[in-house]
Structure formats: C-alpha cells, structure tokens
C-alpha cells in the first residue's frame, strides 16, 4: 500500500511529465477541490453569461444577427453542459453544483453582473469578453485534468468564432451612422475596465495562483494574460476608430507592450461581494428558472417511473417521431406512421 506521500509525489511527477490526470486516478483532495471550484465557476459563468446576451435576442436588429445570437447563446448553454459533465467526474452532481450557485457559495465571472443596454453591448461582449475569455481559456486546453482540458478544446473553437462575430458587429457599427458609432463608443467605455478585471487579481494578490500553476490547472499568470489582451485589443480599437477609455494607455517603446492605467479593484471586489449592477437580477433569474422548472422535471421523472412500472395513463406511441424511415430509399412517410388508414398521397 503506497503511502499518501508517495502517491502525492507520483501524482506530481505525472503532472510534471505532462501526463493527464483522469477521473479514476488518485489525486490529492485539494487538487480535486480546486478543480471543482474552478470548473464549476466556469460552468456557472457560461449559464449566467447567457442572460445578458439573451436580453437582446428578441431585439436583434436583423434576422441574420438574430440567428447568430441565438446560436451563440445556445453554444454557451452547451459549454455549460460540457463543463458540468467534466465537474461531475470529480464526484459531485449537477444538482449540488446548482445548489452552490443558487446559495451564493459558488461564484461566476463578475463580468456578467453588468447590464447590456444597447445592441452595441452584444458586439462589445463578443469582442472583449469573449476575447478575454479565449486568452484565459486557450492555456486551459493543456490543463492537467483530462476531462477539463478536453472540454476546453471544444469550447475554445466556438469561442473564437464568437469573438469574430462580436468584432464584426462592432465593425459594422463603427462604419455605420453617427448614432451607431456613438453606441459602439459607449459600449467600449462601459466594457473595457470590466474586461481587464476578467483576468483576476494582480499576481501579487492572487491567493490560488501559485498552487494552480504547480498543478498545471493554470499555465500563465493573470497579469501576463491581461497584458497580452491589452496589446491585442488596443490595436483592434484603433482599427475600429473608437477610443479606449484610459488616458494612461500608451505604447512603451522599450518593452513593446502597452502600459495601462490603474484598475479599480474596489469595484471588482464589490461585484464579487454581490454589489454589482445586476448581481441580484442574474441570480434571481437562475433561481426562478430552476424553481419554476421543478414541476416539469418532476413530471418527466414521474412519467418515466410510470412507464417502467407499466402504469402510464396511455399507450406509448408506436412511433414517437411520426416519421419512421420506411422503404429502401429511406423516404419518410408521415401518414403511414400515424395510425392513419389513408395512404399518404404525396410521399416520395
């Protein structure tokens, strides 16, 4: 029987050799806890993050944008699913994770506590928020925990598409009318600083960072990623012709990086403590959806139990789809599968 100490050194050795840790492998309790915290926080961010964007689905300015936004928010729901599933491999259920979100015990990204006021916010979120998310997330594709890293590979592919969509919305607005440019500038003014905060506290004030780096759950420091984001985004804003709301932003000729002004960490802390503009609404929306859906989930469960026990009210459908394939050509026939005595007159 190996001692805990030898297990731990074997585990760290695997991490150092870049061997992925899988659900059935031994892992230190704190590694498990750190992963549950990080992955669930990420999953919650995906589903809470649906809310500010879904706020504009019914008001999207044309059908193409409406369809793209719907697809995007749906992708986020899908990301939530992958991540909850990855988290469940660590021995916690999705219902428990929801409970942690609803009780306020688990956090989600503070950026989603800001409101989406105009259509340009949908562009700014795609460009800045998804842009920052990608920078945070690309290194996670190499995270040491297998299910997490694999989920992140899929997520990053979709996120980069979202980021391009967001930039395209901004570009269209910036090349549009005066009013549209004003809308774009206003959105940048409101989303810039919160986007920088997405990278988390300064390196000298980040309590979990050192251990996460050692375990290779995390690969780059917060400040390193934040700098990379500022460098790239500043030039994109110049291309768009809108101004980043930071008078101190300037290229440092020595380092080749853009220097930026001080981040208001008081605001960041206040939002994490629940005092952001939309904290209450976002959490209430999630709790309400969950509570209002309880009877639906109960009905589904009751039905499947009755079906299993043979006590359902009615007979099961012979063909639930009503469109079972028939014939060697794979042609579909609606009527023949709907207990309809008449032949289908127009079936290929």
């Amino acid at each position: 029987m190996p001692t805990e100490q030898t297990q731990e050194s074997y585990f760290q050795d695997k991490i150092d050799r870049e061997v992925r840790i899988e659900p059935t492998d031994w892992m230190p309790d704190n590694y498990r806890k750190a992963l549950i915290r990080q992955i669930s926080q990420h999953a919650h961010s995906e589903i809470v993050g649906m809310l500010p964007e879904a706020n504009w689905i019914t008001r999207a300015p044309n059908l193409k944008r409406k369809a793209a936004l719907l697809a995007k928010v749906q992708d986020e729901a899908g990301h939530g699913l992958y991540l909850y599933a990855a988290c469940e491999t660590l021995g916690i259920t999705r219902d428990e994770l929801y409970e942690q979100l609803h009780s306020g015990k688990a956090k989600y990204s503070s950026i989603f506590n800001y409101p989406t006021l105009t259509w340009a916010d949908i562009g700014a979120i795609g460009w800045l928020v998804d842009g920052a998310a990608i920078m945070n997330q690309v290194p996670l594709c190499r995270a040491s925990y297998g299910p997490y890293s694999r989920a992140m590979v899929r997520i990053c592919k979709e996120e980069s598409f979202h980021q391009r969509q967001g930039f395209d919305i901004m570009l269209t607005l910036c090349r549009g009318t005066e009013a549209q440019r004003g809308m774009a500038q206003d959105a940048l003014n409101r989303w810039w600083w919160p986007s920088l905060m997405m990278f988390g506290p300064r390196d000298d004030d980040s309590p979990h960072s050192a251990q996460s780096m050692k375990w290779k759950i995390k690969r780059n420091s917060n400040d390193e990623l934040r700098q990379r984001f500022v460098d790239i985004t500043t030039e994109q804003a110049q291309f768009l012709g809108i101004s980043i709301p930071d008078p101190e932003l300037a290229l440092d000729p020595e380092t080749g990086h853009y220097r930026y002004g001080a981040i208001n960490w008081e605001e960041f802390k206040a939002i994490i403590a629940g005092q952001g503009p939309c904290n209450r609404q976002r959490l209430e929306a999630r709790k309400t959806a969950w509570a209002d859906g309880a009877w639906v989930r109960e009905a589904a469960l009751a039905h499947s139990q009755k079906r299993a026990a043979g006590t359902s009210a009615g007979a099961p459908l012979a063909d639930p789809s009503g469109v079972a394939r028939s014939g060697p050509t794979g042609a579909t026939s609606a009527e023949t599968n709907l207990s309809n005595p008449q032949p289908a007159p127009y079936v290929k």
């Binding site: 719907l70 959806a289 639906v296």
Partner: peptide, 11 residues
Amino acid sequence: CGHGPALELDI
C-alpha cells in the same frame, strides 16, 4: 433562452 426548466430543454 436562458430561462428553461433544465439546461437540455433550454438548448
């Protein structure tokens, strides 16, 4: 969207 009774149903 974002308010369904379960994530799968939302999707």
